[in-house]
Nucleic acid binder design. Structure first.
Lengths: 340, 340
DNA sequence: CTGAAAGCGCTTACAG
DNA sequence: CTGAAAGCGCTTACAG
C-alpha cells in the first residue's frame, strides 16, 4: 500500500475503510470518533508516514500556528557579527515557541531597508515578535502602521510613552540603579557613563537614568562631559573610552550600557595602562557569554533571557487569543565578577 | 472601500473591475496581462493593503518557499548557552534565505528527544538544513530515514563514508593542518590535542587527523596520552586541560578542536601559572567573537560562516530543483593573534 | 489579453 | 458515531 507522492487523508480513508472526514476527526483526536476506528486510522497514517498538510489545514482554519521573529540589527553592518545578547534571546524564543506548539519564522532586518512585517498579512504567521536595539525613532512610524492594521505583535525593549504597542522589557532603570549602587558601595568618586543617553535608544536611556538618579541621590553629579556616546559594539565602546581619556576626564568608575561596550572600554583602559578594578571599576549590562571569559571578568547586570523569551511568546499568544495583556517588566540581576 | 477582515483577490477584482483570475495574473506580473490592467490591479491591492494568502498559494502550487533549519544543540543542556559559532551560521543562513526569497523556519533540537524533521512532510518547508555538532552516531539512523523518504536536506559538517546525504563543510582536515604548521614554525616540541578524536564527532576527528598527520610528517608523534577528550564547551576544555596537567603530561603547544574548548584551556593554564604563549602556545578553531576578546587573544582557524550559509541554502535549493549538486568543502583560514 | 471553472488537501457544520 | 458536502483563497489549464 503505497500511494504515489505524499499520502493524503483520502489515502488513509481508503486503506482504513472509513470516510475522509472520519480520518480528519480521528487524527485530531476528536471525541466524536470511536476508539477502535481512531486506532485503525492512526495505524494506517503511521504506516504511510502521513502528515497533515499544514497549508491546507491553515487555509481552512485561518491560522498558522506560526510566529515570526523580526530581528533588527545594529547599524554596524558587519554581516556576521550579531549582538550575542539577541542571539541568546532567539534561542529562548525558539524554545518557548516549541513548547507552545508554534513554529518560528526568523528574519533579520538590516536597518530600515527591507521591512518584512507582512508575515501576518500573508497568513504566514499569527503574530510577530520585534527584537533589536537600533534607533527606535527610525521605525516608530512602522509600528504605528502595524497598530493601524491591527497586526498582532509584541516588542522587546522599552515602553515609550504615547505608544500603544505591547512590550516586554527588562527593568532597565532598575538595572542602572543596581550598577550605581554597587559602584557607590566601593566608594568610587568619579563616574562616567558610556552609551546613548537619548531617546533614540530608550533602553540605554533608561539604564542611564537609573544610574544617574541613584548617583545624584547620593550627592554625586554626572555632567555632560562624563557621558560618552556609543552604540552597542566593542569598537564603539573602545573609541568612546579613548576619547574620554584623551579629553582628560578623570574617573574611577565606569558604567557601560552594554557588555559589548564594556569590553571595548576594558581594552582602551588596558592600553592606557589603567588597572581594572584598581584604577577604574567597570560594570556592563546584558551578561553575554564573553563577559565571563574576558579578563578581568566583567561585573554586569544580567537580563533573564529565558524568561524574556517565554514572556514574549506567551504575551503575544494571549494577544492573539484576544485576552487582556499588559506590558511586562523583568527584574535585572547584578552579577559580580572581577571588574568591579 | 474597505472589505471586512483581510482583503482577498476577489475584493481586488471587484474594485478593479476585472476577474479574480486576472488579479492573480496581474499580481504575479504575468506577461499575459495588459499593462494598464496590471497597474490598476496593483493600485487597488496597495490601497487595500492586500497580500497574497501564502497558505492558499502554497497549497495550490504545492511548495512553500520556506526552508527549515534544525539546530542540534550540544548535549550540555544549559538552556541559554548556544555555541556562538552556530548562532553565527544561523545569521548567515537567514540572510542567504532572504536573498533567495525564502523564509526560514527555525527549530532547536535538544538532543534526540524531539526530532522535528517533519517540516517537509507537512508541507511547511521545501527542504531542511541540519546544523550542529552532537554525536553523529546518534542521529545517523534518522538521516537514513530522511533519505528513504526522499526528503530534501543538506547537512553541515563532515562527510561520512557510506552516507548518501548532501553536505557542506569546512575543510576540517586542512584546518588541522594549518594549526599544526603554525605551531611547527615556532619550533614547539611537545604537542597535545583537546577534543573528541573519534568518529562520534567526524568534524573534530578530521581536525585531529590533519593536525596529527602534519606533525608526524615532521617527525613529531602524538601518543594517546597527548589527546584529551572534550566536547565543545568551555567547561569541558577546562577540565580536559586540568587532567592533562594533573597527569604530568609535558607540552608547549596545544590545539583545541574548538574555540570554546580553547577558552577553557586558557583558563586552566592561567590557573596553573603557565604563560601563554610563553610556556604553551594555544590554537583554537572557529573564530567566534570571544576569541578576539579573550586575553591573550586567541589564534584560531576561521570558518567562513557567511559563505557557509550561502552554500548551504544554494545547494539545498538546487537539490530541490532537481539539479546536480555535490558536497562542498570550504577553505579554512588561520587567524594569528597573541596566543600562538 | 481575459474570464469561468477546476482543484490543491484539509476542517467542520449539517444530516443522519 | 459516521458520511457527503461546502468552502478556505489561491493558480492555472482551457476556451474564447
Amino acid at each position: 500500500m503505497k500511494p504515489k507522492g505524499k499520502a493524503t487523508s483520502f489515502d488513509i480513508a481508503h486503506f482504513a475503510g472509513v470516510s475522509q472526514s472520519t480520518v480528519s476527526r480521528a487524527l485530531r483526536n476528536s471525541p466524536l470518533v470511536n476508539e477502535e476506528t481512531r486506532r485503525r486510522v492512526w495505524e494506517v497514517a503511521k504506516q504511510l508516514n502521513y502528515k497533515v498538510d499544514k497549508n491546507a489545514s491553515n487555509l481552512r482554519t485561518q491560522q498558522s500556528s506560526t510566529l515570526a521573529l523580526l530581528l533588527f540589527e545594529d547599524p554596524t553592518g558587519d554581516e556576521s557579527q550579531i549582538n550575542p545578547f539577541f542571539l541568546n534571546m532567539l534561542g529562548s524564543i525558539t524554545r518557548a515557541c516549541a513548547k507552545q506548539g508554534y513554529d518560528l519564522l526568523v528574519s533579520f532586518q538590516s536597518s530600515s531597508q527591507d521591512w518584512r512585517a507582512d508575515y501576518e498579512d500573508s497568513h504566514r504567521a499569527d503574530g510577530i515578535i520585534l527584537l533589536g536595539y537600533g534607533d527606535y525613532m527610525d521605525y516608530q512610524s512602522r509600528l504605528q502602521q502595524l497598530l493601524a492594521q491591527d497586526t498582532k505583535f509584541v516588542c522587546w525593549g522599552a515602553t515609550v510613552d504615547g505608544r500603544e504597542d505591547l512590550t516586554v522589557s527588562c527593568d532597565n532603570y532598575g538595572g542602572g540603579k543596581l550598577a550605581a549602587e554597587h559602584l557607590l558601595q566601593q566608594n568610587r568618586s568619579q563616574y562616567v557613563f558610556i552609551g546613548d543617553a537619548s531617546d533614540h535608544s530608550p533602553e540605554f536611556f533608561a539604564r542611564f537614568k537609573g544610574f544617574r538618579d541613584t548617583l545624584t541621590a547620593q550627592g554625586h553629579s554626572l555632567s555632560e562631559r562624563q557621558i560618552a556616546n556609543a552604540i552597542s559594539t566593542e569598537e564603539s565602546g573602545y573609541h568612546a573610552t579613548r576619547s574620554l581619556l584623551a579629553n582628560n576626564i578623570q574617573f574611577d568608575a565606569l558604567f557601560a550600557a552594554s557588555d559589548l561596550i564594556a569590553i571595548g572600554a576594558l581594552k582602551a583602559l588596558k592600553e592606557a595602562g589603567k588597572d581594572v578594578p584598581g584604577d577604574v571599576a567597570v560594570v556592563g549590562f546584558d551578561n553575554i557569554a564573553a563577559a565571563s571569559f574576558i579578563s578581568p571578568a566583567l561585573t554586569t547586570v544580567q537580563q533573564n533571557t529565558t524568561l524574556a523569551g517565554q514572556m514574549l511568546v506567551n504575551n503575544l499568544l494571549n494577544l492573539i487569543k484576544g485576552e487582556a495583556v499588559t506590558d511586562t517588566l523583568l527584574p535585572p540581576k547584578l552579577i559580580v565578577r572581577r571588574s568591579a
